[in-house]
């Protein structure tokens, strides 16, 4: 446990030193405040629209940003150490491969969680203090749900980045593959799903179809933040499939948790079998 914490501690202090933590927090806070203030711009005025609308907008932006940040943070976790020659050295220390990877995950995961908490937390506080007659309880619950799901989504993509990082031998390849992962889950997946829907002309098993959304953590994340308000009218495009998903919020949470547990376990397994 001690060695896991030593590795995590270095990652955390690295992200403080290179101002990653600060930069991500700032981006999150600016984004959240911007959306909160200009959320009603579509209806012709500047001001706070509503909590569900704000959270839905934040989640829509979040699915672009969070995976990207997580992948950038973590893609060189192992391959970077290997290129510098420190991986070989670390492995001669009383430190197992699992401990190294779990330490990295703890460090990166905490960095992302802290940035999310600070960035969106500050924005939430500002909304609560500055917007008149906003229902504080509702806002707090929605913000908490939003932050928690954002952290889980980020962890999922950190773990996916590790799967790449323990497999490849060069940093640029890892970066390329990380971008490909982002591209697939954020842009391609929904298009493919839509294409499948159209091409099958309704012959596709209607009960199976909504479950396909569970194959993409970003879809789970959006569903979670929109469905929670009981307003399925907000669901557009392929997400409307989610209204038919018979598992409810708890199922979505479990899905999001599985989406970081399974890639992390795979990365651990791949790393253990890797030749050094």
């Amino acid at each position: 446990m001690n060695s896991i914490w030593t590795i995590a501690r270095k990652e955390l202090s690295d992200s403080l030193r290179n101002r990653w933590l600060m930069a991500i927090s700032l981006v999150f806070a600016t984004l959240a405040l911007g959306i909160a203030w200009f959320g009603a711009a579509a209806s012709g005025q500047v001001g706070y629209a509503s909590t569900p609308a704000t959270i839905a907008s934040l989640a829509s932006l979040g699915i672009f940003l969070i995976p990207l940040i997580a992948l950038l943070l973590a893609y060189d976790a192992i391959v970077g150490e290997e290129e510098g020659g420190t991986l070989l050295l670390l492995m001669t220390y009383p430190l197992s491969r699992s401990q190294l990877l779990l330490g990295k995950f703890l460090g990166h995961g905490l960095t992302l969680a802290l940035a999310t908490l600070i960035g969106f937390g500050v924005a939430g506080l500002a909304i609560a203090l500055l917007v008149e007659d906003v229902a504080i309880i509702n806002l707090a619950i929605a913000m908490f749900r939003f932050i928690a799901s954002t952290v889980l989504l980020g962890w999922g993509f950190i773990a996916l980045a590790y799967v790449v990082s323990v497999r490849v031998g060069e940093k640029p390849i890892a970066a390329g593959l990380a971008l490909a992962i982002w591209f697939f889950f954020v842009l391609i997946f929904d298009l493919m799903l839509l294409g499948t829907l159209v091409a099958s002309e309704g012959k596709f098993n209607a009960e199976l179809l909504p479950w396909l959304l569970m194959l993409n953590p970003t879809d789970i994340y959006r569903l979670l933040n929109i469905v929670a308000f009981g307003d399925t009218g907000q669901l557009s495009g392929v997400l409307s499939l989610g209204a038919d998903l018979p598992i409810g919020a708890a199922g979505l949470w479990i899905g999001l948790v599985l989406w970081f547990v399974i890639p992390l376990a795979s990365a651990l397994l791949l790393f253990r079998n890797r030749r050094i």
Partner: peptide, 13 residues
Amino acid sequence: IGYLPENVMFYPQ
């Protein structure tokens, strides 16, 4: 065990 590998680049920052 103490080990000095060849050509090790430490964390530059």
